[in-house]
Amino acid sequence: MTAIRIQGLTKTFDGFTALSDIDLDVAPGEFVTLLGPSGCGKTTLLKVISGFLEPTEGKIFIEGSDVTAIPPERRDTALCFQSYALFPHLTVRQNLEFGLRQKKLPRSDRDERVKDVSQKLDLAAQMDKLPNQLSGGQQQRVSLGRALVMRPKVILFDEPLSNLDAKLRDQVRIEIRRIQRDYGLTAIYVTHDQSEALAMSDRVVLLNSGRIEQVDTPETLYHRPRTRFAADFIGNSNVFTGQVLGEDSPGRWNIETPAGIFTCALEDAPHGKEVALCWRPEHAVIGETGIEARVLNRAFQGHFTDLACAAGNGEFRVQALETTAREGDVIRIHVPPDRIRLLEDRP
């Protein structure tokens, strides 16, 4: 059984289509990230799942039952807000207890759950403080705790780390994942940060202007992007349009691009003559063979060096671990055939 099933979901606001025809299944215990640039509809989708927005079309099921018409207060989801949304006049304990009081849980159960969560989140010493006496990281944990005490079927995160500084972010990332696993929660996590999405998720849902661009594991999404958008949004990519020249040897196809001819390994023959291909800057090998390229700019990044290159009528980026190439130098670039991907969208 799926934990969440989204079927044919469309949401329009006064003629503006925020989400169109979204289908998604999430397995129990799975951590799924909704990733995309701002305005892609990821927060709208989260609000529809939590019940704050009603879909224009389509249905949502949680553990098999249709919850499309159920308001957020009766939906078994718990939301962690970007702003934390802690009640400022209530202590940490009262904040954690709030949802349980609404459920009219007996006092002993309440105390037990709050104690359990406060220990797991290392909040035991802060229980009688007000939220504004806590650091950002602590407030973030209270907000997570307030969702966890509800023991929801689904936990939803709305960019929970965007108000934390970079160092704390990495730490909380790991913590959120650990707790999600410990409690066996199904999680949907909204972010615009691709490294967060790649690091945390079981699967990433890449959204672009209200449509699902690609749903895959982080590895597949990175190594086998299906569209130009996916290739560009996740990591860096060199994308070219080109003409298929023909099969060089079995499974090896030559494609002519403005930057030169690339040989790619393909299982099936390309559809049509015009194609779009991409490869990652770190997969290019600088050596004795391959395309001749002139270095336009060199940027040392610490663990690699970023080279902007020009070849023929095309430009691309190359990342080398160690290189002596300088601006103006001519180098030779070879991209292994199995590192080149054909994109599905038409050039």
Partner: peptide, 13 residues
Amino acid sequence: RQDHIDAARDLGA
């Protein structure tokens, strides 16, 4: 704050 209202709602208030 709207997020306070939403949070209360989300927690079943």
